[in-house]
Amino acid sequence: MITENDKLSDVIGRNIDLLPIIHRLGLSTNIGERNIREVCNDHVKDVNFILVILNTYSSDNYFPKPDDLDLKPLIDFLTQTHTYHKQVTIPRLNGFIQQLKQNMPNEKLLLVIEKYLNQYIKKLIQHIDFEEKDIFPLVNRKLMVDEKSVNIKKLFRQHTNVENEISDLKTIIIRHIPQNANMDLIHDLLHTLSHFEKEQLDHARFEDKILIPKLLKLLSI
């Protein structure tokens, strides 16, 4: 469990996958020897909020409680994460596919995977738009009351699909690696997919465990 007295550099050292998350939280500069509390004070961030985020991403057994968090910073963080996937993860995945295609222009597997990935990205962007347009504004009570219970239930359902599809893609690629494939590229692609899958799971955990219960309470459904 990460606490406010841990040095932020040690926390990153133990799990470098936290670096992009720390960056998204606006804490990645001027770390030095400082502990988490000190870095948060420097950047005027709520240390409890930061700890919940870091612990959720570092341990699968950590389940944040809805009362631990304010909704506003959480929504900001989730929106930042969406932007990160749109601007970094998705172009990176596409880049690997294009490089693999140059490497093996006639490989049928790649064409099928590319199609699958494009369909997935389309669904993911729809899901992100749905959250940002139909769910997040509920926090500021900007939506009509009648629509929301339906919307919130829909959010739960969509999550499972979004995560499973990435995990399935990984499974299928591993089983069908072509003989003449550039193994470094395949490895990078699988690594990015694994990382993406893990992030999606944690992202859904925030939304299912914190956002939705808090919203339901807020709107007293």
Binding site: V112, I113, Y116, N164, D168, T171, I172
Partner: peptide, 13 residues
């Protein structure tokens, strides 16, 4: 393989 998309891809391959 859990998702419908994944099963479709498997079936196609």
């Amino acid at each position: 393989i859990k998702s419908i998309s994944g099963l479709t891809l498997y079936a196609a391959l």
